[in-house]
């Protein structure tokens, strides 16, 4: 009961405090919205909107979660209010789950913003919504923990945003979001298969346009493994670096 109360309090506080912070708005909301509009409006009828929808959704989740984490963790760490949480009688794992849940929810909401825009332009029937939700959720979890890994490694919010861009932007081109993996140069393909978003995007493609190329079980396995691994590494890093 006490653990649940602490969990919800941290989650509620983060949502209330950070969802509308400037870095979140610019990187987490404005950027994905602009990106979506750029594809949907500027491309007109030349682009298969349903075809690119999974990619845009995945990017919205990726940018939303990693931006939010940079704020909720790095900002609090910088202001030393994170110490207050470390000194509370709650386990580090519970604390980090509470801190990341707000981000996961933010990522999922962000992931469906492109769907909202697309609904005005095309017929969205035929999409497996349950599967699409699970895919977005898994991408949100994995990219949140990727963001957590970055947030724990830096000390300034701008560093977190910059560091995040080192993997966010290459992922746009390497994860099969807009360029199919088979069309990538052979020497880049192994790199694609190392990135978790490749598997998340494939799941989404399957849900939205039924065009996945990797077995579902493998997508799920890789995403869960990545998520768990990154969470464990991040909490280990916090224990090593922040509990001096």
């Amino acid at each position: 009961m006490e653990k649940t109360l602490a969990f919800w309090s941290i989650l509620r506080k983060d949502i209330k405090t950070y969802y509308l912070k400037p870095p979140n708005i610019s990187w987490g909301i404005i950027f994905p919205v602009s990106w979506t509009l750029m594809f949907f409006i500027r491309s007109g009828g030349a682009v298969d909107i349903k075809g690119i929808l999974p990619g845009v959704m995945a990017l919205s989740v990726l940018f939303g979660t990693t931006s939010m984490l940079a704020v909720t963790i790095t900002f609090e760490r910088k202001k030393r209010s994170f110490e207050r949480l470390l000194l509370a009688p709650i386990s580090l794992n519970l604390l980090m789950l509470a801190k990341t849940t707000g981000t996961i929810i933010f990522g999922v909401i962000n992931g469906f913003i492109p769907v909202l825009f697309a609904s005005f332009l095309i017929d969205l029937s035929g999409i497996n919504w349950f599967f699409a939700f699970i895919s977005v959720l898994l991408i949100a979890v994995t990219s949140t923990f990727l963001g957590l890994f970055v947030a724990v490694s830096v000390s300034e919010v701008f560093e977190a945003q910059t560091f995040s861009n080192f993997f966010r932007f290459p992922m746009i081109f390497l994860c099969g979001l807009f360029i199919p993996l088979d069309n990538l140069p052979v020497f880049l393909r192994p790199l694609s298969y190392l990135l978790p978003l490749t598997y998340g995007a494939d799941l989404l493609k399957l849900a939205v346009s039924h065009r996945g190329s990797i077995p579902v079980w493998l997508n799920l396995l890789v995403l869960v493994t990545y998520g768990t691994g990154l969470f464990l590494i991040s909490t280990y890093n916090i224990q090593k670096k922040w509990i001096y």
Partner: peptide, 12 residues
């Protein structure tokens, strides 16, 4: 614990 810096949440 009362740290040497007032580290509560500005927005709250």
């Amino acid at each position: 614990i009362v740290p040497d810096e007032s580290n509560l949440y500005d927005e709250l």
